[in-house]
Design a protein around this nucleic acid. Sequence first.
DNA 1: CGGGATCCAAAATGATACTG
DNA 2: CAGTATCATTTTGGATCCCG
Lengths: 120, 120
Amino acid sequence: MPWDPYDRNCPSRRLLDRIGDRWTVLIVGILAEEGPIRFGELARRVDGISQKMLTQTLRNLERDGLVRRTLYPQVPRRVEYELTDSGTSLRGPLRALEEWAVEHMGPVSAAQAAYDEASA
Amino acid sequence: MPWDPYDRNCPSRRLLDRIGDRWTVLIVGILAEEGPIRFGELARRVDGISQKMLTQTLRNLERDGLVRRTLYPQVPRRVEYELTDSGTSLRGPLRALEEWAVEHMGPVSAAQAAYDEASA
DNA sequence: CGGGATCCAAAATGATACTG
DNA sequence: CAGTATCATTTTGGATCCCG
């Protein structure tokens, strides 16, 4: 069975890899909270992202069926992004990780300080 | 409050970034299942990793207090790695993500095929 | 406004050789 | 065995220009 997330070539593994990239977690989080949102507004909400990476990340999410892109044919044009049901289902696991990170930040920082101290 | 995982400079965010790197998830998973494990054995279990990245990833995990490194002063020497309590607590959230990935792999692959088809 | 295309700098990773 | 050090390569991301 090729469903082992520990196998680097397994599709589920590749899915995880992409979700773990620099921007996906941020963008999914914002889409989950802000509902449908325009491209430009999203760019402002994601601190420090370049337009290229925003486009690229959104394209990937769209291709994976996690985000829906809606084009309103106006001039100037208007494009809105929102999570699909599939994308929404990712929110839970992601939040669990975020909460873990927030909870363990203190101990981790302390451990780092101790480690650096010991090796100094 | 500087604990917002959406802020790229927040410590919790940086913690997430490192956990999301290419190897950490794999290694934590294996350590969780295999208990204390030697360096060489770990290298064989993590498919495709270079020795350099294994060392680097383990060092980071150790510095964060998520992994404990034990050196047995023999010749040739023997080093074992295992999760700390803190590291073990990461396993739950990580598994939730892995399970999500396995569950959604099918729909995602289908969405990708449809997307590629449409743009062909 | 929402991108696509291109070029370039930087960061991550791999390969290889060496060591206590 | 379990690394360290160094160099080569691949991958990413940012800057810029252009277009409907």
